[in-house]
Amino acid sequence: MATRRGFLAGLAASSFAPVAGWAKVGAPEFLSAARSSDDSYHLFGLTGQGAPVFQIPLPARGHAAAANPLRAEAVAFARRPGRFAIVLSCETGVILAELDAPEGRHFYGHGAFSSDGALLFTTENDYDAARGIVGVWEARTYQRLGEFSSGGIGPHDIRLMPDGGTLVVANGGIETHPDSGRAKLNLPFMQPNLTYLSVEGDVLEQAELAPEMHMNSIRHLDVRTDGLVGFATQWQGSTADSPSVIGLHRRGEAPQLLSAARAQARAMDGYGGSVAFYDEGTRIAVSSPRGGLVQLGDVAAGAVVGQLDMPDVCGLGVSGGALRASTGTGAFWAATATPRVLTQQPVAWDNHLVRVSCG
């Protein structure tokens, strides 16, 4: 991929000054897609207390977004197997660009910017070849520079690691094809993994769960400042056999699922929706909209230590070190030992609260 590598080399020698920081649009802490009461769809910017500071229309249901670290721009992604990804000015509400998935591809609902905001990386499905792809886009004109393998099938979430030069991808392992809707085509043979890639596309490391956990699809990610990766899984086997859906991984080691009592594991109904480190990274939380709860884990102990009941919860984020949660009922929660609703909006919040770093 000489074109992309050349762009990276040129970028290092050039200035990339921000046009407008997030402070100009109210310094939101989170982005979230939502369905409004009139069945229209929007991308919202939210404070740490859940108060909207802007909302921008979307053409259809959104899943997650990527926030440019320097400019008040967001890329909103369609829910899988959607093909739209639109670049929005969060200052004016104007659509700045539309990303078109190449022929034979669709987006998986997530993306990540490079630390300088110059590149966007998108998870994609090359569905006829049944392989995962990371697309690479220049983040001024949003022209596609190239692509590389995600290291597995069904790449969903993608995050930039703290070193700024490494990406981690949650390859869920599930083969899908738009002709079959959201049907899962390879469950008996699926092989989820975490793949660590350089931003140039070189595979640096791959990690898989134990063989008996091969149906525990790795979907969503959070990364602690020291590089510890937290992940949420979605179990594709019998609900009666559902294992823990919260995991941790440090490079060079084997991934581990948090230990959980049988009743705790079954309470999640095999579904981890979002994941977030909180309390200065000593705790980790995973939501389950199916179970209607947030499960809490102690990182050092590697164990589930509690849960919070919240109907239709999915989005998780952190504000001032404290856990926040959003639900399909429009509630935005302070997810403390005694949870309380901070705001209630006439919307159905979608799956994720995306952090914004205000430049």
Rank of each mutant, 00 (worst) to 15 (best):
G152M: 10
S40A: 10
A13G: 13
V53P: 07
E208Y: 08
R159C: 13
Q307C: 01
R283D: 01
F107A: 00
A322W: 00
G321Q: 06
E73A: 02
V299F: 02
R219L: 11
T176P: 08
A210I: 03
M213H: 09
H42E: 02
M1R: 13
A260R: 09
D350W: 12
Q264F: 02
T225F: 00
R262D: 12
T336H: 06
L167D: 01
G173K: 05
R182D: 05
R79P: 03
K184Q: 03
H214T: 06
S319Y: 10
R80G: 04
E91C: 06
R262L: 10
R182W: 04
R131H: 04
I174S: 09
R290H: 02
P188Y: 05
F113A: 07
L11I: 04
D128R: 14
R71G: 04
T47R: 14
R105T: 00
S357E: 14
L194A: 05
G172Y: 06
E147I: 06
Q345H: 10
Q206M: 12
A23D: 15
M310D: 01
P57M: 02
T123C: 11
K184L: 06
S217G: 13
F148G: 00
F77Y: 15
H42L: 00
A261Y: 03
P178Y: 13
S37K: 07
G146Q: 05
D100Y: 00
G252R: 09
F84Q: 12
G132T: 11
W22L: 10
T336V: 01
G237S: 10
G321V: 04
R159I: 02
D350E: 15
Q49E: 14
A331C: 04
G104T: 00
L342A: 11
A263L: 15
D202R: 13
N186C: 08
E208W: 06
F148R: 04
I133H: 04
T166Y: 03
C314I: 07
R159M: 13
P28H: 00
S180L: 01
L46N: 15
R355P: 11
G315E: 08
D157E: 12
I133N: 00
I174L: 15
F231V: 14
W22E: 04
A322L: 10
A112C: 13
L8E: 15
R71V: 03
H63W: 05
L308K: 08
K24D: 14
Q191M: 13
G291Q: 04
S32V: 14
G315P: 01
E29S: 15
A263G: 03
D241Y: 00
A301D: 01
A130T: 04
L145S: 08
K24G: 00
G330N: 10
L209K: 10
F30A: 08
D222E: 05
H352I: 08
A20N: 10
S326A: 13
T239V: 03
A67N: 09
P188F: 05
K184F: 12
A334E: 08
A334Y: 10
G164W: 09
E138C: 03
V299M: 03
D309H: 09
A267G: 05
L185C: 02
S288D: 01
A27R: 15
F16H: 15
G317R: 11
G152H: 03
R80M: 06
G146A: 08
A129F: 07
R71Q: 13
N125L: 07
Q307P: 03
A12N: 11
V25E: 05
